[in-house]
Write a protein that binds this DNA or RNA. Sequence first.
RNA 1: GCGAGUGUAGCCAAGAGGUCAAGGCAGUGGAUUGUGGUUCCACCAUGCGUGGGUUCGAAUCCCAUCACUCGCCCCA
Length: 433
Amino acid sequence: MGAIQAIRGTRDILPNEVSYWQHAEATARTIFQRAQYQEIRTPIFEATELFARGIGEATDVVGKEMYSFTDRGDRALTLRPELTAGVARACIQNGLLKPGSLQRLWYTGPTFRYERPQAGRQRQFHQVGIECLGSDSPLADVEVIALATDLLQALGLRSLQLDINSVGRGEDRQRHRQALVDYLTPHKADLDADSQDRLTRNPLRILDSKNERTQTIVQDAPQLLDYLSPESRRHFEQVQASLNDLGIAYQINPRLVRGLDYYTHTAFEIQSADLGAQATVCGGGRYDGLVATLGGADTPAVGWALGMERLILLLQELQASPTTAPDFYVVSRGAIAQARALVLTQKLRQQGFGLEFDLSGSGFGNQFKRADRSGAIACLILGDEEAAQGKISIKWLPTQTQDTWTQDRLLTSPDSLRQTLAQLRETLAASQT
RNA sequence: GCGAGUGUAGCCAAGAGGUCAAGGCAGUGGAUUGUGGUUCCACCAUGCGUGGGUUCGAAUCCCAUCACUCGCCCCA
């Protein structure tokens, strides 16, 4: 009652879930590093104008999904709804885009969009992404896509689908858009309400409508792929050829369009059937115009962003949470013994062992119960008797055997300790399968 | 932003206007003040998302509000 709650569309990531995040982040990091992508960290909020100009005023993201506010200095600011624009801004501002040079970058961090929350969709969510700036080669598109599929595969995800398309260049889209409007206008009355609305705002989207009647009308509508310039078509063909060389399965989806204005040529999406309505895990493409739009030198670029929450949902369906059991559980009783036990605990931790120290102050019986639940391989036991003699008892939980060592021996034989732990862990694993 | 559904403990839940709200899992303490996993016992919601209203009486009916879920829109 009266307790303050996390605000709508935000959530806490609790310890039992964090292990998935760490696993995903670590995997991403090694894959990016192997391909010589460097991490970049940019601010969580930026000038509103950056997104308005970069993403496009007419897009849904800018039009109705931004967390915008003015600060005490009357600056118009926005919590970033995606990271690409900020990364591009940082590259321009810091002179990272020298003519003829390449920047390979990756990033991760929180992202904000004011939308109705659903499964796999929140107002604060997290993205991981990469950007390859400075190359117009179709091979850059494919390198970037391959890193996405590598990452997902390394995480053990199956049954994902890669859709690709080419949205051409601005001129190609203009011509196609005109043709599309010309084709659809006579049918306007038969379109669903949403699509009628989109006829003037964003006719491309009509192709994607889920309305059956609209779909039958749209079947014979002009396809964007037929309006591509020869250059754009060649680019798209090379992307496909190179994907084939790498054995990456894909589907050409002529209806795939991206929600942000800055995309050119290649657009792609990776979807999962296990995510419900929010099926896209990873989306990206080429954005040759963005850097120039933001005031930088003309710089071709490709990249993608991946939704961490959606990725974690898939990982959780796949495997149980990785456990983090300690090597030793430290059982002690009596003020002097406890104080000594803590000293030994710290020294063993400094040698690289994992130890959980019992702080409950309850009887040995209860401490052993907790030791068992902790999943530890052994108990270190220090009571009045051991403390008085400078000794310590070690109970090996899987074998129910117990040794008494001098405390000195405990601290000076890390190798044999490690060996015993490894052996017991093995037999434990064997007995469980 | 629109449409629909659901809120009872950390989790899964029964309850359907009338004994100070079943049960299970988890947790804590004890049987066992120096030895675990099994077992047994005890404890664990002055309150049913929140705020109003109807009623002699509300977890149960009504209204509002908040949150979540599903669909639309859109995206990661």
